[in-house]
């Protein structure tokens, strides 16, 4: 189990690094002075999932429930990441680095989900996590004709993924310390 967690944490750390870089690149290039952050409040498709928002909440939640939170958030991103890869190619003058990162993130997120299913199978066999996830209905907004609206839809998706990939990475690091190192990392 220690090896599985090491691999999962390496992947989640990598995915969060890529998503931060991708968000920052997009923000600098397309979002300056457009006031997107104010519009991004309460706009993530995963916000219906209840997730710990501070250390106390994260420490009080049972580890099996926290593992299920990670699975639900990961599953909720399968679909939007797939569409992100195809739609990002249509952004005017999108730099190759953003495109490459979108593809890499989509690929690695699937690998992390597989790894997490293995971990959950080992921690509580029989219960392969509830199949709970949040559905995403944002594809039409990524294809809007109005450039400002379309760029905001991309900004919002990248903002939400940066946040969720950071949560996943943080929760996995907590779980690893709790389950493998007896809370003494």
């Amino acid at each position: 189990l220690g090896d599985l967690f090491d691999r999962a944490v390496r992947l989640s750390h990598y995915i969060h690094s890529l998503s931060s870089e991708m968000f920052n690149e997009f923000d600098e290039r397309y979002a300056q002075g457009r006031g997107f952050i104010a519009k991004a409040i309460n706009s993530c498709h995963t916000s219906s999932l209840t997730t710990p928002e501070d250390k106390e909440q994260a420490q009080q939640i049972h580890h099996e429930d926290l593992l299920n939170v990670v699975l639900s958030v990961l599953r909720s991103w399968n679909d939007p990441l797939l569409h992100l890869v195809s739609e990002v190619q249509r952004i005017k003058e999108a730099p190759d680095t953003i495109l490459w990162k979108a593809m890499e993130i989509e690929e690695q997120n699937k690998r992390l989900l597989e790894g997490m299913e293995k971990i959950v199978g080992r921690v509580h066999p029989g219960d392969l996590g509830n199949e709970v996830y949040s559905t995403w209905s944002g594809l039409p907004s990524l294809q809007l004709a109005d450039e400002d609206s379309r760029l905001f839809a991309f900004y919002n998706l990248l903002h939400c993924f940066r946040r969720d990939s950071h949560k996943i990475d943080n929760y996995l690091k907590l779980l690893k310390c709790r389950l493998i190192h007896d809370s003494n990392c």
Binding site: K55, Q59, N170, K173, L174, L175, C177, R178, S183, C185
Partner: peptide
């Protein structure tokens, strides 16, 4: 910084 619990890395 709480690095023991994994809250910060």
């Amino acid at each position: 910084a709480d690095v023991r619990s994994g809250w910060l890395t």
